[in-house]
Structure formats: structure tokens, C-alpha cells
């Protein structure tokens, strides 16, 4: 799980694409997913996501992300299916509209999460920061905050799994199958997790400062982030996704 959000080196068109374009493409998928209510369009978006995964050479990772989202999706699906009361009753309190709303929520979730995770797989965090600063003129402090947060995700997850392992070893039932019970056990552990994270953030800030964080300007970046044909293609695809989602009823 901890490597889900981590950069995987490669030389695919997606790796070479300008980071800003990648972010734009990701956001387009999100916008498209929220514009449409058509389940088939959502399915098409997911298919598109998977194709991107293949193009990035990360198909197996894309599947792993799906698997990771499966439990949450299932939970959401059941919740939606039970609570939407409109439409015709099919079985007990489950209605046809409930089912389609539930399917919509889950498909949307999948369609949106996948590209977000994939962007991090094909882009180095320093390139995200660099391009945001250079191309979009985002102040460096904001870009740094964003990338530090991204860098923290795997560390945070590693710490969490370490804590859960240590607690399991002392008899706390983290190996229970009951997800609610597990949640109840996890909550008290957020305190040590928070403390270690805060300690870490402080150290990161100081470490960045002694390496000239305050001196950084828009001109500091060594790498230049240009736009090429891949980027043009991505922009066209983005436009097509949004238009398609908006037009198809």
C-alpha cells in the first residue's frame, strides 16, 4: 500500500508530459466525472483512466489502486443503495433509483481517484513544484507545502502500518475482520501519529531552510518545463472529455 502514491521512474509519454498538463488532464477527468450522470460515460472515463495507466506503464499499479478503493466503494454503494428512497422498490427498501445513484457515486469515485494517484506515479514531486512555480507562477512556499504533503503520504502510511503492527503485537485486535471495531481501535492511535508528524514537519522546514529555501525564486529552477506535442494532444483530449461529458445526456 505504501508505494501507491510514489513516483515510478520511466520514459513514457506521460512521464515526459509537462507536469502542468498532467494536472490539467487530471482535473479534466474530475470535471467530466462530475458533469455527467450517465453511468456509461463514467464507465468510459474509467476505461480512459486505465488506458492512461497502460500508457504510463503502470497498469498493474492502476489495478492495485482499484483494489485499494474496493472496500470503500462497497461501503458507499451499500449506504447509498439503502438510503435513497426515491424510485420504484425492487427489493426490501432498495429502489432502482437508489441502485443507479449508488453506482454513480462509486463509479465517480473510481474515475476521479485513479488519475490523481497516477499523476504522482509518473511525476517527480520536485517537477510538480518546479512547474507550478515556473509555468503557473505559484509562489514557491505554496508549491513546497503541496509537495511536502505529497511526500508525507507514504511516510504517514508507513508510520500508521508500523503503529498498527506494534499494537497488534501487544494484543490489540487489529487483525479483526470487523471494520467498525477496527476503526474504533485506530482512532486512539491518531495522537501518537499526529505527534510524530508534527515533529517531522518541523524538522523538514528547518532542513529546507538551511538549504536555502528562503532564497528560492522563480528563476532558481534548473530544469525548464516546456510544452510539446504530447501536451497539445493532452489538452485536446481534456477538452474532448469535458465536452463529451457535458453533451452526452
Amino acid at each position: 500500500m505504501t508505494d501507491l502514491f510514489q513516483y515510478v521512474p520511466g520514459n513514457s509519454p506521460l512521464h515526459r508530459m509537462n507536469p502542468v498538463t498532467k494536472i490539467a488532464l487530471t482535473l479534466s477527468v474530475c470535471v467530466a466525472a462530475f458533469l455527467t450522470d450517465n453511468l456509461f460515460v463514467l464507465l468510459a472515463l474509467i476505461l480512459f483512466d486505465l488506458m492512461i495507466g497502460v500508457a504510463a506503464g503502470a497498469f498493474r499499479k492502476a489495478l492495485a489502486i482499484f483494489r485499494g478503493l474496493f472496500k470503500v466503494s462497497l461501503f458507499l454503494f451499500v449506504l447509498q443503495a439503502l438510503f435513497v428512497r426515491r424510485g420504484n422498490r425492487l427489493l426490501w427498501i432498495v429502489t432502482d433509483e437508489g441502485l443507479s445513484t449508488a453506482a454513480g457515486v462509486v463509479l465517480r469515485l473510481l474515475a476521479v481517484c485513479l488519475p490523481l494517484a497516477l499523476v504522482l506515479t509518473v511525476t517527480r514531486v520536485s517537477d510538480i513544484a518546479g512547474a507550478l512555480v515556473q509555468v503557473l507562477h505559484v509562489p514557491y512556499a505554496y508549491a513546497f507545502t503541496l509537495t511536502t504533503a505529497i511526500r508525507f503520504i507514504p511516510q504517514f502510511m508507513e508510520e500508521m502500518s508500523g503503529i498498527m503492527e506494534a499494537q497488534t503485537a501487544r494484543g490489540v485486535e487489529f487483525d479483526t475482520k470487523n471494520i467498525f471495531k477496527k476503526l474504533g481501535l485506530i482512532l486512539p492511535l491518531c495522537v501518537p501519529l499526529l505527534i510524530s508528524s508534527i515533529r517531522r514537519t518541523g524538522a523538514t522546514a528547518t532542513a529546507a531552510e538551511v538549504r536555502g529555501f528562503n532564497l528560492r525564486t522563480r528563476a532558481s529552477g534548473y530544469k525548464k518545463y516546456g510544452f510539446g506535442l504530447v501536451d497539445l494532444a493532452a489538452v485536446l483530449i481534456s477538452a474532448a472529455l469535458i465536452t463529451g461529458a457535458a453533451l452526452i445526456p
Binding site: Q6, Y7, P9, R124, V125, S126, D127, F144, T147, T148, R151, Q155, R200, T201, A203, T204, A207, A208, R211, G212, F213, L215, R216, S220, G221, Y222, K223
Partner: peptide
């Protein structure tokens, strides 16, 4: 804690960081 010191995802970027800043 080296892990809190490293801010990049790739080795060369980590070394570039200070060079760029200074």
C-alpha cells in the same frame, strides 16, 4: 532523521535543490 530532511522523490532532484536555491 534523514527521512524528514529529504524533500524530493529522486536522488538527483535532492542534490539539485540546494544548488538551485543558493
Amino acid at each position: 532523521d534523514v527521512d524528514s530532511q529529504i524533500i524530493s522523490s529522486v536522488v538527483e532532484d535532492e542534490i539539485l535543490y540546494g544548488l538551485e536555491n543558493f
